[in-house]
């Protein structure tokens, strides 16, 4: 069973790496979807079927599709890909690469320093998650709905096609 975890982990990391390197936007999105699916498998292995389903349905299914729609609206074309090649010179990766590496090293160091006990394991049923959500975390649920409402309104307003003469902006 552990092999599933490690294989999925490898796929997730590889496809994520491809996302950040890829020049074509839609290709990158597809890689991202693969990464998300791999993470969903990991969730299943960790005994979290509910969030695994959520990951696939919402993250990979809705959010990424939203990205694809946006790409379609933007209608970038081949010129964008060419431009990406120009923008992504190898020397651009040096500084950020070092920083990210240091960050990763710190995190790894912290994790290995501490002695971790064995995980409790076990599957956490969706029922339990629901009970927790509408039990102690019900306030968070309400707030989440408010956040979504705000995002809806914001996206509607920001996405409006304003007449070209207006200078001040939304």
């Amino acid at each position: 069973m552990n092999a599933v975890f490690y294989v999925s982990a490898l796929i997730a990391v590889a496809s994520t790496a491809m996302v950040i390197i890829e020049r074509n936007a839609v290709h990158a999105l597809l890689y991202l979807i693969v990464s998300l699916l791999a993470v969903a498998v990991i969730f299943f292995g960790l005994g979290a079927p509910f969030v695994a389903a959520l990951e696939v349905l919402i993250y990979a299914g809705a959010i990424m599709v939203l990205f694809v729609f946006a790409m379609m609206l933007l209608n970038l074309g081949r010129a964008a890909t060419e431009q990406e090649r120009q923008w992504l010179k190898p020397r651009m990766w040096r500084g950020p690469g070092i920083l990210a590496f240091i960050l990763l090293a710190e995190v790894v160091y912290v994790l290995t320093c501490v002695g971790w006990p064995a995980p409790a394991g076990g599957v956490v049923e969706p029922r339990q998650v629901g009970a927790a959500l509408f039990g102690p975390y019900v306030l968070g649920v309400e707030l989440a709905s408010l956040v979504l409402l705000a995002a809806l309104l914001g996206a509607y307003h920001l996405g409006r096609r304003t007449p070209p003469s207006e200078g001040g902006g939304p």
Binding site: G95, P96, L99, I102, L103, E106, V107, Y109, V110
Partner: peptide, 17 residues
């Protein structure tokens, strides 16, 4: 973004090391 990451690195450095 780079500055944020730098800040995070330094903060963790101070906290941890």
């Amino acid at each position: 973004a780079m500055v944020i990451v730098m800040g995070g690195v330094i903060a963790i450095w101070i906290l941890v090391l």
